[in-house]
Amino acid sequence: MSNKAARNLFIFGSLFFFVIFLGLTVDTMNQIDGRAPEVTKEVDAGKMVWQKYDCIGCHTILGNGSYFAPDMTKVVERKPAGYLKQFLMDPRAVKPTAAMPKLGLTSREADDLVAFLTWISKIDTNGWPPKPMLAAAAGVGGKEQTRGQQVYQSQGCSNCHNINGIGGTSGPELTRVGANGKDAAWHVKHLKEPRSVVPNSAMPPYAALSNDDLKSLAAYLVTLK
C-alpha cells in the first residue's frame, strides 16, 4: 500500500464511520423523549441543583461520575422521598455516620432534586442496574419465613436497614435491635409514627399497615438479639 492510499483510507474511512455515527445520533435523539417521562419545570430545576452542588463530583448517576458515593439512578426506589429530603438538607442529622457534608440545600432545592432523581429513576436504562443475583436468596436459607419476616421483605425495610450485613446503611442496623430493651408495643408505636418516639426521625410512618402486620413485624424485630 502506498502512503497516499493509506492516507486516503484514513481520511475517507474516518469520514464514513463518522457519517454512520451521525445517522445513529439523529435516530437516538428521536427516540430519547419516548424513553423517559416528560421533563417538568421541577425536574429541570432539580437538574440545575444537581449541577450547582457538583453532586457528580462524588456520586455516579446512570453509572457515570466519581465512584466515591452511591449511584443515584434508582435511589428513589430504595429510599422514601421524605427521608431523601431530610437527608439532603442535613445528612448527619438523619444518619450520624454519613460521609456526605451539609451543603446548604434549601427546602425548595431539596424538593426539586428529589423530583429530578424521581425522573431519573423512570428512565428506560435497558435493565440497569441489574437486580442482585444472590440477594433474593439471602436471609431465607430454605426455611419457611415467619409473617414478620415476610412483612419486613414486602415493605422493603432492607433498603435502609440491614440485618447481619444484608441491607442498606441509611437507617440503623437491626441485627441486635431486640437487645435494646424496647418491647413489641414500643415497636408498633414507632412503626405507626416514628416521630412519636424518636424526635426528628427520617423514617416514614407505616400506619397504613394492618394491626396484624404491625404486630408480626414488631414480634420479629424483638427476636433479633
Binding site: F17, F18, Q31, N64, G127
Partner: peptide, 28 residues
C-alpha cells in the same frame, strides 16, 4: 504509512466505539 493505518483504525473503531457508553443511560 503505519501512522495512517494506526490512526485510521483508531477512528474506525473509536467513533462507533462511543456506543459502549450508551448501553445503560437511556439510549436505545
Amino acid at each position: 504509512k503505519w501512522m495512517y493505518i494506526e490512526v485510521g483504525l483508531v477512528l474506525f473503531t473509536g467513533i462507533l466505539g462511543t456506543g459502549h457508553h450508551y448501553y445503560f443511560i437511556g439510549t436505545p
